[in-house]
Nucleic acid binder design. Structure first.
Lengths: 221, 221
DNA sequence: AATATAATTTAGACCTACCTAAAAATTTGT
DNA sequence: ACAAATTTTTAGGTAGGTCTAAATTATATT
């Protein structure tokens, strides 16, 4: 079955938005904001994607990718990140110049091309931005560590390291009851000073300043 | 001004067909045969291309590329051939596997990408099929030598070499009044035995067997 | 619980790029 | 030169993907 350029972009958007909010349903408006289309256009497309069994869709109730839709979205992401790696590693683009070109290249259809490109690049695990590249089966072999302060997802964050290695900071962390491997949930984020309220291992809660949160590295589980 | 994927394919088709027949006007049916579309669809598109000043078009009279249209077509060809070179040289595709993928890649929009790809490949003059790659200004620095027997264009052929180097064949050629640098025109081609009637330097005419014609190399001027 | 507000969907329109069928222009054959 | 055959164009329709404006459903407020 054929999936168009535009349909692929919708699937990718739904995948990304769903990840941001703990794999929950994605709303029409979220998609229209993300894609900079009107909500009415999104509704049209959702019907078509549902006909093709790429999403589960009930009107007014938001949307989720089916396994087939998810597989398609991850394949597009795989292609995008491999092409970004190619553009930076081989063609010597700057990392900030490659996004628009990769947006086009990600839609080229050829399984053999993806596989050969992957080999040519030495089967990289991450793209130039540090984002993980899924393998041909759709599996992400690495998770990216990011600053807690820049985590977009609220749930299922695991502490994997720190970027401030001073004993002062590490002492502060242990006093706060935060250790490597702990599970964090962002309960509140305050935009005026970018401080966070965090729940640790579903037990105790605490406030973290932006400075502290930016030095805690987490992965999305 | 934006030129769509489909419009680019029409321009490429018109360019190729025009070259086959001494840069003459191209007919609606030639285009529809080549693109495997219906003639009515071609007429639709020709009107749009004419609106965009990419072709000169008068109804019932065939069509020619404008300078702007020609420049666009050559740029697409440049991209196609550079990508083919990449696929074969770098990704180790076989030369006969790359065409469909290059048909997609040729429409990626980014001048910087083309230039960087060209440099990455070492500024090749020809693609893996021996077809010349135009430079960024649209100039072809080499002409491809082909067997006279496989020339699709009838006019403006220049003798550049032979593939049978036997003294017997060379003697036959000089007896026939054909030498390096001579200008040839195909006046007739007979499909039952693939023999050709040739005019040499706009002066004398002669018949050539398929065997003889397949050993004479020519370029298109 | 009724109403106001926000989110979503429907209705109707447009453009690109294709199609079929019929009409018009051109070319060919005698 | 005129009829026949061929080529090309016009007319009208379809599907994808977008839009605006209006209607519907869901959510929030009081």
């Amino acid at each position: 079955m054929l999936i168009s350029y535009t349909e692929e972009n919708y699937l990718k958007a739904i995948y990304a938005l769903s990840r941001l909010y703990n794999d929950s349903e994605v709303s029409t408006n979220q998609i229209s904001d993300h894609l900079k289309n009107k909500a009415a256009s999104v509704t049209d497309m959702l019907k078509r994607l549902a006909d093709k069994k790429l999403i589960d869709y009930k009107r007014y109730k938001g949307v989720k990718l089916t396994d087939k839709g998810k597989k398609t979205a991850i394949k597009v992401i795989r292609k995008h990140r491999l092409w970004e790696a190619f553009l930076v590693e081989k063609l010597k683009f700057k990392w900030d110049e490659v996004h628009d070109i990769a947006e086009q290249l990600e839609h080229i259809q050829s399984d053999e091309l993806i596989q050969k490109l992957d080999n040519f690049l030495g089967n990289p695990k991450c793209d130039p931005h540090g984002d993980p590249i899924p393998d041909a089966t759709g599996k992400f072999s690495v998770q990216r560590s990011i600053a807690l302060s820049s985590a977009k997802q609220k749930n299922s964050l695991v502490v994997t390291g720190v970027s401030d290695h001073s004993s002062e900071f590490l002492k502060y962390l242990s006093n706060s009851g935060i250790a490597l491997g702990d599970n964090l949930k962002i309960e509140e984020s305050n935009s005026y000073d970018r401080s966070l309220k965090i729940k640790v291992n579903s037990k105790h809660s605490l406030f973290l300043s932006h400075k502290a949160a930016s030095n805690i590295l987490v992965e999305i589980k």
